[in-house]
């Protein structure tokens, strides 16, 4: 492998990592605050993709604007879903079967509504963004770069919100110690609803971004669910930084893995990684690091 090939692969891994982080972060904060494994995340991503598609088809809106618009729309949608369904789940410190089934069932509903509306043929958003940015021998896909920048910017904004706002501190407090959060008066229900809205906003946003890169159908999002699990296991639930870190590792392994195994086996990489990580260090890499500053 030449140096140029290596750099090109490195760049595509980096671009991929940004996208993966945007996918996983919504699941992470929802799991952290509510201990719900949100399987419907894939459904929200699918809706995000079609949302962007419809805006593009009917209003000829730039897909980048559509993706940004998906944030507030899906935030409200997520709050609605929480109000309608999620808040009735029993509270627990552990993921419960009922929450798993509810979110899985809701995903199936979303998927089938998708089939009803859009059928099962693949759609894509075709724009002028599909060029590459040549930098001598190194090429960067423009669409990929734009998506990467959008994803990373949103992650940075989220990081800022979590660290500098009262809402963000209450989210962190609930993730790290729900009992202590209750003692100082954090309203679990209200913070949960906002968090669910935020997580859904990120799912819709990630889906809308991906619609600029990939074709999609109502089953869209499924392969990214496993990847999100791997990223969460690798990076832990503590921070956006952890998610970015997990996303980077997965993207690097997936991208460079293609050199060694046939492309058709690529999805096996994330599955394999999940198994290996759970067997070798079940607390994740973040868990290993965390032991250093765990409270006595």
């Amino acid at each position: 492998m030449t140096a140029v090939e290596f750099i090109n692969l490195l760049i595509s891994a980096l671009l991929l990592a940004g996208l993966y982080a945007a996918v996983a972060v919504g699941m992470t904060i929802i799991y952290g605050v509510m201990k719900i494994v949100n399987l419907a995340h894939a459904g929200f991503m699918m809706l995000g993709a079609y949302f962007n598609y419809e805006l593009f088809e009917w209003l000829h809106l730039d897909p980048m604007a559509g993706a940004l618009l998906s944030l507030p729309v899906f935030f409200v949608f997520g709050m609605g879903v929480h109000w309608l369904l999620v808040r009735w789940l029993p509270k627990s410190d552990q993921p419960t079967l009922s929450s798993l089934l509810l979110m899985f069932g809701f995903w199936l509903v979303l998927q089938n509504v998708g089939y009803l509306i859009w059928g099962n043929s693949d759609r894509a958003i075709l724009t002028a963004h599909r060029r590459t940015l040549p930098l001598g021998p190194i090429t960067i896909p423009t669409a990929g770069l734009v998506v990467f920048i959008a994803a990373v910017t949103c992650l940075a904004v989220l990081q800022f919100i979590l660290h500098k706002s009262w809402f963000g501190r209450s989210v962190t407090a609930l993730i790290q110690n729900p009992y202590a959060a209750q003692i100082v008066g954090v309203d679990h229900q209200k913070t949960s609803q906002l968090t669910f809205g935020l997580g859904t906003a990120f799912a819709g946003f990630a889906g809308a971004l991906m619609a600029m890169l990939f074709s999609f159908n109502p089953d869209f999002g499924r392969p990214f669910l496993v990847r999100a699990f791997v990223i969460i296991v690798l990076g832990g639930l503590e921070s956006v930084t952890g998610v970015a870190f997990g996303a980077l590792i997965l993207a690097l392994i997936e991208t460079f893995g293609i050199l060694f195994i046939p492309a058709g086996y690529q999805p096996a990489i994330s599955f394999g990684l999940l198994v290996v990580v759970l067997l070798v260090f079940p607390t994740g890499i973040a868990g290993l690091l965390k032991r250093k500053w765990r409270l006595a």
Partner: peptide, 17 residues
């Protein structure tokens, strides 16, 4: 029952949540 992964100042500020 502190938040181990939050700064001391953020822990204190949460008292004024």
């Amino acid at each position: 029952q502190l938040w181990a992964g939050m700064s001391v100042e953020d822990n204190l500020l949460m008292g004024c949540y």
